[in-house]
Computed example of a mutant assay.
Amino acid sequence: MLVIRPIEQRDFPALKLIAIESGHGFTSLPVNDELLQNKINHSEASFRSRPAAKGEHLYFFVAEDTETGEVVGTTALDAAVGLSSPFYTYLLGKQVHSSPKLGIYNVVETLTLTNDYTGVSELCTLFLREQARQGLNGRLLSKCRFLFLAEFSELFDRRVLAEMRGVSDDNGNSPFWSWLQEHFFSMDFPTVDYLTGIGQKGFIADLMPKYPIYVNLLSKEARSVIGKTHDKTRPALRLLEEEGFAWRGYVDIFDAGPSVECDLKHIRSVHNSRRLTVQIGHPVHTSKYLVSNTHFSSFRALIGELAINEEKAQAVITREVACLLKVEDGDTIRVVEIG
């Protein structure tokens, strides 16, 4: 069984291994010891004392195998992006060129550089190691964040986004970036991906085209991947779409992968989750639920079997599940059907 918990200092070796395995295009986990350590430090500081409101806080979680103690995945919530350094996206839009006198009316697509997501909360750093990609593990890793969002909604923006990795090959070559590189930059995609991951984003403002790019001027290969998702990221996108996330035309400035978003209160697992009182016992007529405790700094989440007593608003769980969630009789948990 996997249990989700906040990252700790002892998880650094596992985090570095995951960063290596995640490959090109996974900007939020650069293979850089200092930056990875900073993420752990940032998350620990965010969890140390519950903030009064939304701010530049990172809530970084790991998935731990309860049998082996091995960390097999990561997932995170960035409470507000773009506050201390710009958060860039392209917005796919339209411009009309018309001349009634000549009888000409043309609609062309454009890509405009924006900072529209400044202050928005982000789902990020979702990665499950290959040996753990089975059963409901992927759902747990993705959806556990929604129980945290539901329980501590005051710490997050009303809008929640997720950047999906765009199309690139095994060597890190991105068709979209190849066109940008040819016309505006002199760096390959792995290099620019790494620089962004370590926070060196100044070159974006310096070198990115300042005016809208006409999509029809891009290469056929670049046009074909706008808003498209990397093969390995499609399962994650499907899980988010189940929750109500949708693409509204924003794409990554490097690989043109889609950014999907949803109002926090409209996220299915946020809206449908509920608090129940714990009763430790031997549940019968059980169903699988995504379940978490309601603790902040010692947050835990898992997928487990439980029985619900609707009349008493109680969840009957086993002693084993209670121990993993760090709860006792009479405590409160948050549950939602896993779907």
Rank of each mutant, 00 (worst) to 15 (best):
E182V: 03
I280N: 11
H295D: 10
A236S: 15
K54N: 11
R274E: 15
M187G: 02
N32A: 05
E261N: 12
H24D: 09
Q134A: 07
R50C: 12
G199K: 03
R274I: 07
A76I: 06
I253E: 13
I104G: 00
H24M: 05
N38T: 12
T112P: 07
E163M: 00
K326I: 03
K265P: 14
T66C: 12
A301V: 00
K288N: 11
L77I: 11
I204V: 07
T89P: 09
C262V: 04
E261G: 05
L128H: 01
G166L: 02
Q37Y: 06
K210Y: 01
L276N: 03
Q37K: 12
C124L: 09
G69Y: 02
I104L: 05
A63D: 05
T286K: 07
T89D: 13
P235N: 06
L35W: 06
V81L: 10
H57D: 09
A76M: 04
P283I: 02
L147W: 09
L240R: 06
L111D: 07
H271A: 11
L17Y: 10
V120T: 10
V108E: 08
Y194M: 00
I213R: 09
L306H: 05
T125Y: 00
V336D: 10
V192G: 06
D263N: 15
T277F: 03
E154V: 02
L92H: 14
S273R: 10
L141F: 00
D206Q: 15
L195V: 01
E241Y: 04
M208C: 01
T114N: 13
L128D: 04
L92N: 13
L218A: 09
D170A: 15
V316G: 01
V81G: 11
V270L: 02
A246E: 14
R248E: 15
L207R: 03
G249C: 10
G55Y: 11
F47C: 10
R133S: 13
Q181S: 15
A222Y: 00
L324P: 00
Y211C: 13
R234Q: 13
G73N: 01
H271N: 14
D116P: 05
T112A: 08
K288M: 12
F60P: 06
R268K: 09
S22C: 08
G199A: 11
T114M: 14
G249H: 13
R159N: 08
L264F: 04
C323H: 11
W177A: 03
G281M: 03
F184N: 07
S28M: 00
F245L: 09
G166Y: 05
K288Q: 12
S85P: 08
H271P: 04
V260N: 15
E241C: 09
H183G: 04
V215K: 01
A301F: 01
E243N: 08
F184R: 04
K210R: 12
P175F: 02
L218V: 08
L111I: 05
Q314A: 15
D329A: 03
I267F: 00
G119M: 01
T277K: 14
